[in-house]
């Protein structure tokens, strides 16, 4: 009930989220591509960071939303929350895919390889596969309630991977560099930090906006299916 009310409250500001995301990403992209300086060691390659880091952070946040939503669904059995979880998984998959793709593009000139079985990369790929599995599961079953329950359980089990992704660069000596922004401090030049923060805020706002649109889309699809089913049964009668 509380979550439902919160979702409805957020829905009222849908346009603001979309507009805010467009503004932050527009300015962030301009700064990242045009005004921010190249890195001393990485040169132009560093610019991919303005897409890669926000995508990676948002994908972790998206999975956290999916995890909380799944627990909430198993507890309350609220179809609105299930819709939201289904929507989150689709969007999270896009974010994880973007983070993997941009990371790979960055890795080629920096590590001289498109892919390596580094703990951060491998755990991120597992996250991608978990989300693919989640979305596949949502198409297999006819019983909507069973489908939602199994999907929620899968999302909860998959959450084990999230701390591994996040702390992998701390727990193991990996090729992937450690966190540049943590409680220990920020190791960024201010000219690079501003576009990165703007892109991160923009990415989070975009996720929220996409979540609202996709939840609405899934709800409307179900509504239409239900209505068409009702009309069909009336025609048969």
């Amino acid at each position: 009930m509380i979550l439902n009310r919160f979702i409805r409250w957020l829905g009222r500001y849908e346009g603001w989220f979309g507009g805010g995301a467009a503004l932050c990403i527009g300015i962030g992209l301009y700064m990242g591509l045009v005004t921010s300086p190249p890195d001393y060691y990485q040169g132009e390659v560093v610019r991919i960071m303005y897409v890669h880091v926000p995508s990676a952070k948002t994908s972790l946040f998206a999975y956290l939303v999916l995890f909380i939503g799944s627990i909430w669904y198993l507890w309350k059995r609220d179809p609105v929350i299930d819709n939201m979880c289904h929507a989150t998984a689709g969007i999270a998959l896009f974010y994880v895919g973007t983070a993997l793709l941009t990371g790979s593009i960055w890795a080629k000139p920096t590590w001289n390889t498109w892919w390596t079985w580094d703990p951060r990369l491998t755990s991120f790929a597992i996250l991608f596969l978990t989300l693919v599995g989640y979305l596949m599961l949502r198409t297999f079953l006819d019983d909507k309630e069973k489908e939602a329950t199994f999907a929620a359980i899968l999302a909860i089990i998959g959450f084990i991977d999230l701390p591994i992704v996040y702390f992998s660069v701390e727990w193991w000596r990996t090729l992937h560099q450690p966190m540049s922004m943590s409680v220990r401090g920020i190791s960024f030049a201010p000219e690079m930090l501003t576009p990165l923060i703007l892109m991160s805020i923009g990415s989070s706002l975009l996720f929220s906006y996409m979540l609202m649109v996709r939840t609405q889309m899934l709800y409307l699809e179900r509504l239409l299916e239900a209505k068409q089913g009702r009309l069909l049964s009336e025609t048969r009668l």
Partner: peptide, 14 residues
């Protein structure tokens, strides 16, 4: 550093 200009275009790809 050599410029690796393709990275700028990777913005669009992604």
């Amino acid at each position: 550093v050599p410029n690796y200009g393709f990275v700028s275009w990777a913005y669009l790809v992604t």
